[in-house]
Amino acid sequence: MGSRLNKILKENKKLLSVFFTAGFPKLNDTEVIIKSLESSGVDFIEVGLPYSDPLADGPTIQHSSSVALENGINLDIIFNQLEALKNSVKIPLVLMGYINQIIKYGEEKFCQKCKDCGIETIIIPDLPMIEYESHYQQLFTNYGISNVFLITPQTSEERIRKIDKITNAFIYVVASSSITGAKGEISSKQIAYFERIQKMNLKSTLIAGFGISNKSTFNTVCKYVNGAIIGSAFINFLDKNGTGNSSNFVKNIVKN
């Protein structure tokens, strides 16, 4: 697929993606956050769709989601915010949300809205491969949307190969057996897992996430995969500093 994201994924560099929760810290912070992340050199951005019951998320993202929901965020507002940025933001945006939000919104309507906003990639952590294949693959394809699958230290080689085959954006390499959340270090056990994945010579671009929190963890995982997503650490940063200095957060990670 010739999407914007796919062009970036082919670039030969350490890719940095940052996750933030739409509607956090303030309802209308989406634009400032996206623009400052873009201008500070982030390669693509993950926009979290706040959910009441985010099963795969740790306390930081849970908290940001409930604040965002209290702020009154909803999918219609988010799509309006993103559509307004469509022409001015050049880097790709990836949506991350839970399947119930999409079912309730209307699967077809959701896809149409993604298309209207120029969204070509989505991550739905609680949509398993079998459900994707039987109920969503055709629909997403019709709207030019690529679904991102996760792999974890527990995922079997056979399953990883299968995921590699049906992936047309990137594979989300979950860095540890855990929910999201900033952690200090990358353990030797994690390194062994990254090495195992690296040796599999998969066709897909590999982006690591969950527990990548700073320059050192980012650089470590990038020795094995093509890039990484930082989420909770950025949410914590926003919580402390507000949106004004978002670019400082990124500069601290990418500066050499």
């Binding site: 959910y51 009441s52 019951d53 099963l55 999918l75 119930n100 939000q101 079912i103 309730k104 609680d126």
Partner: peptide, 21 residues
């Protein structure tokens, strides 16, 4: 409630118009 996904299964659940439980 109406149709949606809660705790790993497709079922009927109480939710708002945006699927928040």
């Amino acid at each position: 409630g109406d149709v949606g996904v809660l705790h790993g299964s497709k079922t009927i659940l109480m939710q708002d118009e945006y699927g928040q439980v």
